[in-house]
């Protein structure tokens, strides 16, 4: 019973692994983006994305097969998949000790270590245990018992101990790259600007709602607009949106066209710019 209770765990890991790989392929589509992820690192650059996508598809098919049917093909295919993964990781560790396993996409970027090998070995063993289940995977959810839940949680805990990705994820959440080094789209800054008081206050001065220029410097995104003062003088209205935080400060200045002389400045207080 302990062995068959691991089916939800195996199916969950296959699904999460597949989704993480697809996300990684979408995010790191540029050349070199997956050069540090196994098993992509073992194949030429042009095959890296197809290999990861293929791997993700196989995982999804296996997970669906385990849950939906009791066909023995999916049970044996899962055993073969994890056994082969163990061999690939072993080979990866020998040939490319600098790259990560890529099991969960770019979260698995730390070099392959014994724990990663132990995890695929445990998963292979769990897959072997599924051969004793004569019912489809969904049957377990219908006939759920506390013993099965505890068994599955025990299996998850064992896999968590063997997962360096958890430490990596915690580290990424705790220590984010500073704002000035993170790519941040202008569109979200523009949305923040348009919902701000500074925008509503100066909107009537603007000749157009489309900025004439937009640029980013460190953690600030600037939007420059052509406008006119109530006296009819042509001016540039520039907004500076801070790119970090839930309620980012937004600065605004109205600058004359002649030599950049400031006509009015509504935000004398400044936020220090750090580098």
């Amino acid at each position: 019973m302990i062995a068959v209770s691991q089916l939800p765990v195996v199916a969950l890991l296959l699904t999460v692994g597949a989704l993480a790989k697809v996300v990684t392929v979408r995010r790191r589509a540029e050349p070199g983006g997956m050069s540090q992820l196994g098993p992509a690192a073992l194949v030429p650059a042009r095959w890296r994305s197809p290999v990861l996508v293929c791997c993700a598809l196989v995982e999804l098919v296996l997970a669906a097969g385990l849950i939906a049917t009791a066909h023995v093909f999916f049970r044996w295919a899962t055993i073969a998949f994890f056994a082969m993964s163990t061999y690939v990781l072993w080979e990866l560790r020998r040939r490319r000790p600098d790259v990560g396993c890529g099991c969960f996409g770019d979260v698995s970027a730390t070099p392959v270590e014994r724990r990663s090998l132990a995890r695929t070995t445990v998963l292979t063993a769990m897959s072997v245990g599924l051969l004793w289940l004569n019912e489809p995977g969904w049957w377990l959810f219908v006939n759920l018992s506390w013993f099965m839940v505890f068994s599955a949680v025990g299996g998850m805990a064992l896999l968590a101990v063997c997962s360096p990705e958890i430490e990596e994820t915690v580290a990424r959440l705790r220590y984010r790259a500073p704002c000035e080094r993170r790519p941040l789209p202008a569109s979200s800054a523009l949305a923040r600007l348009r919902s701000s008081t500074a925008w509503r206050t100066h909107k009537e001065m603007l000749s157009s709602e489309e900025p004439t220029d937009s640029w980013r410097e460190l953690c600030w995104r600037f939007f420059s607009y052509r406008g006119r003062t109530p006296t009819g003088e042509a001016v540039d209205v520039v907004f500076a949106v801070y790119l970090s935080g839930r309620k980012p400060p937004i600065k605004v200045a109205v600058v004359g066209m002649d030599g950049g002389e400031i006509v009015t400045a509504t935000a004398p207080d400044t936020v220090p710019v750090t580098v």
Partner: peptide, 19 residues
């Protein structure tokens, strides 16, 4: 074009001086 103007505008918005 216009990159010199950026320094003036950024300095005005953030209260910096343009050196």
């Amino acid at each position: 074009p216009g990159i010199d103007r950026r320094r003036v505008l950024a300095a005005a918005a953030l209260g910096r001086t343009v050196n």
